[in-house]
Design a protein around this nucleic acid. Structure first.
Lengths: 355, 355
DNA sequence: ATGAAAGCGCTAACAA
DNA sequence: TTGTTAGCGCTTTCAT
C-alpha cells in the first residue's frame, strides 16, 4: 500500500493537521513545507480521494447517464462535459443505459451508492422515480434534451420545434410544397417537438400537413431507411424530405442511394446532426445542427453552480468568452429550477434544389 | 444525510456486524432479516460504496483513458467495456485526454488519487511514466491498440499490419498496380503497423513501394482530405488508394467528391472503420473493420481476471459464446503480461473496380 | 502555525 | 448467528 498522511507526519515529526493544512493550501512554515515536500517525494505519497470523500461527504464525482455512448451526438456532449468538470476537479462516471429504462434505473441506483455529488442525465424512459433519491439527498440533477414536468430539476434543451420549422421553411422557400418528414418515436420528447415544428411550419404557410407525408422512424439507421422507403412508396409527388435525427439521416441516404434516386434533382433533403457525415455525403447534405458544446457547457455550469454553492464558477480556461449571446435563459422560480433552451444551427449543403 | 448502517442497527436493535452480514449476503436469522429489510425500507438506507471502498481498499472502479471519446472507434470500445464492467459491479471513470500527452499524465494522476482498481488505456503519448504508480501499487493495467516495450502490462491489439496487407492484396487482385496509401502519423503505433503492412504486401507481389504513393495524414478529416489531394497531384497514374483510418477516410471522400473524381471508375478506394459511414457512402465503400466489441471484451476480461484474483470471470449474460475462435493469445511470460492480437474484418462495398 | 483527538460509514477480526 | 471493537485515510474542531 502507498504512503498515507500519517507516514508523512511521522517522517517529518509534524502533526497530521499540519500535513492536511499543507495539502489543502493552508499556511505552513517554510521550513516545514520543505520537510513535507521531501517526505512526500521520498515516500511517493499521493492523496487518497476516497478517504477525503468519506470525510467531507463530497466525492467530487458526477454521474452521467445517457441512452447511448455510441452515438456522436451524445459522445460530443460527454467529451465536452467531462473536460469542463475535470478542470474543476470533478471526475465523471458515465453509464450507458442502451436506451433501456431498466438499465437506467439501475444506473441511478449504482451512481447513488457511489455517492456522486450530482447527476447529468438524458432520460431514456419517462419514469423519474429513480431521481427522487438524488433530489431528496439534495444532490443537483441536470436533465438534458428532455423535459419532464413531474421532476423539478434544471434542464438544458434545444429548440427542436424551431429547428424543424426552420428546415421546413427553407424547403418551402426553395419552392417545395410536398414536403415529407421522417419523424422519430412518438414517445420521445425531441421527436414530438420536431414533428410539432414541421406541422406548424406548414400551417404557417397555409399548407395542410398530410398524414402520408410523415413516416415514423425509430431514431435508428434501419428505421430511417424503412421510413424513407415508405415515404417514397406513398408519395410519388413528394419533392423534399426533412429527416429528424442523425441515424435516420444515414439510413435514409442509404435507401436513397440504393434506389437510385438522385439528390437533389429528384429529391431535396435536409438532414440532422453530424457535420462530418453531411460534408462527406454526395452531394453535401444540408443539415440542422445541434450545439453540443453549448449543451455540455450549460449542463456542467448549471451543476457546478449548485455544487459550489452559487459562488462564481470560473469559466474554463481557453473557453471562448461570449458566444453565449444565443442563450435564452428562462427562470421558472427564482432560485429554483432553471431551464435553458439553446438555438440550433444550420449548415448549408447542396442537397436542396431551388424549384 | 441518508441513513447509515448504524441507524439500521439502532432501529432493529441488532449489531453492526449483523447488518453488514445481511448486506453482504451472509446468514441472518429469518426474523432479523425481515426486521432489517423493514428498517432499510423505512429509513431509505442505501449502502455507501465510498466508505466500503475505504475500508476494503477496493473502489470497484476502473479508470479508462482514451485519446478521444468523440471518435466512433473509441466510443464503441468504451460502450462495450463499460457494460461488461458494470455487470461485474465496476464503475468506470472515463478521461478523454484529447490526444494530448500532458492531459494523459494528468488523467493518470487524477485516477490514481481516486484509487481506481485498474486501468484501461490507449496511450496518446509514448511516455509510460505515469503508469509506474499503478504498476507499483499492484493495480492491473491493460493497454489497448498500442504496444510499449518498456511497460510490462497486458495488451489488446489488432492485427494492423495484416489488415493493411489484406486491403492492398485485394486491390492487387483486382488488377491494380499503382496503389496509393494515406498513412497516419509516423509516431503512432497503429499507423506504423499499417504502413508496414502496405509495404510488405506490395513487396510480396514484387512491386517496389514508391515514396510518392504514400501520403501522410494525421488521422484527422482535414488531414485525410489534404493527403488525398496531394496523392492525386503527385500520381496521375494511381488507380487505387488505401486509407488507413476512419477520419481520414471521411476526409479523403470529401476531397474526392469535391474534385469530381468518380469512384470506382477513376479511382478504387478501400477505407477504414465505421460500417455505417461506409454503407451510406456512394458508392458503398469497401472497408477494413476493427472488432471493437472483441477488443473491449478482451480488455475487460483481462482486467477482471487480475482483479478477481484469477478466479473465473463469468461470461456476461447474453454474450455470444464462442466467437472467439479468431483470438490468438500469445503468452509472454507465464502468469505475467499477456498480449492478445485480434483479427480485423473486411466489408465488401462497391468502391473497388476490377481492372 | 501546529498538535491531539474524534469521527465520516463501512468491514473484519474476535468473542460470545 | 450475533455483538463489540478497531481501524481504513482523511478533515476538522479545539487547544496550545
Amino acid at each position: 500500500m502507498g504512503a498515507t498522511m500519517k507516514d508523512i507526519a511521522k517522517r517529518t515529526g509534524l502533526g497530521l493537521a499540519t500535513i492536511s493544512s499543507y495539502l489543502n493550501g493552508g499556511n505552513v512554515r517554510e521550513k516545514n513545507r520543505i520537510k513535507i515536500e521531501e517526505a512526500i517525494e521520498e515516500l511517493h505519497f499521493e492523496v487518497n480521494e476516497v478517504a477525503r470523500g468519506l470525510k467531507t461527504n463530497r466525492t467530487k464525482t458526477i454521474g452521467i447517464i445517457i441512452p447511448e455512448l455510441n452515438n456522436i451526438f451524445f459522445a460530443e456532449i460527454i467529451t465536452e462535459a467531462e473536460d469542463i468538470l475535470r478542470n474543476h476537479g470533478y471526475a465523471t462516471m458515465i453509464c450507458d443505459c442502451r436506451s433501456d429504462e431498466k438499465r437506467e434505473a439501475e444506473a441511478e441506483e449504482f451512481l447513488f451508492h457511489r455517492r456522486v455529488d450530482g447527476l447529468i442525465l438524458m432520460p431514456a424512459g419517462n419514469g423519474a422515480d429513480g431521481l427522487s433519491r438524488f433530489l431528496r439527498a439534495g444532490k443537483p440533477v441536470v436533465m438534458i434534451d428532455r423535459k419532464m414536468d413531474q421532476v423539478d430539476c434544471d434542464c438544458v434543451l434545444v429548440d427542436n420545434e424551431g429547428a424543424a420549422a426552420e428546415a421546413v421553411e427553407r424547403l418551402y422557400q426553395a419552392g417545395h410544397r410536398k414536403i415529407g418528414m421522417i419523424a422519430g418515436p412518438s414517445d420521445v420528447y425531441t421527436a414530438k417537438e420536431r414533428l410539432k415544428g414541421y406541422r406548424s411550419a406548414l400551417k404557417k404557410r397555409g399548407l395542410e400537413p398530410e398524414e402520408s407525408l410523415v413516416a415514423r422512424g425509430d431514431y435508428t439507421i434501419a428505421g430511417g431507411a424503412r421510413a424513407m422507403h415508405q415515404l417514397k412508396e406513398q408519395n410519388a409527388e413528394m419533392t423534399a424530405v426533412f429527416i429528424s435525427n442523425y441515424e435516420m439521416t444515414v439510413g435514409a441516404m442509404m435507401e436513397i442511394n440504393d434506389s437510385g434516386i438522385s439528390v437533389p434533382e429528384e429529391l431535396s433533403v435536409i438532414g440532422f446532426d453530424n457535420t462530418d457525415f453531411a460534408k462527406a455525403s454526395v452531394p453535401r447534405l444540408s443539415i440542422v445542427t445541434q450545439p453540443t458544446g453549448e449543451i455540455a457547457k450549460c449542463a456542467a455550469e448549471l451543476l457546478l453552480r449548485k455544487l459550489e454553492g452559487e459562488t462564481e464558477v470560473r469559466p474554463v480556461e481557453g473557453g471562448t468568452a461570449e458566444e453565449s449571446g444565443e442563450k435564452q435563459v428562462k427562470r421558472r422560480e427564482a432560485g429554483k429550477s432553471e431551464t435553458v433552451k439553446l438555438k440550433t444551427g444550420f449548415v448549408e449543403g447542396r442537397s436542396v434544389k431551388q424549384l
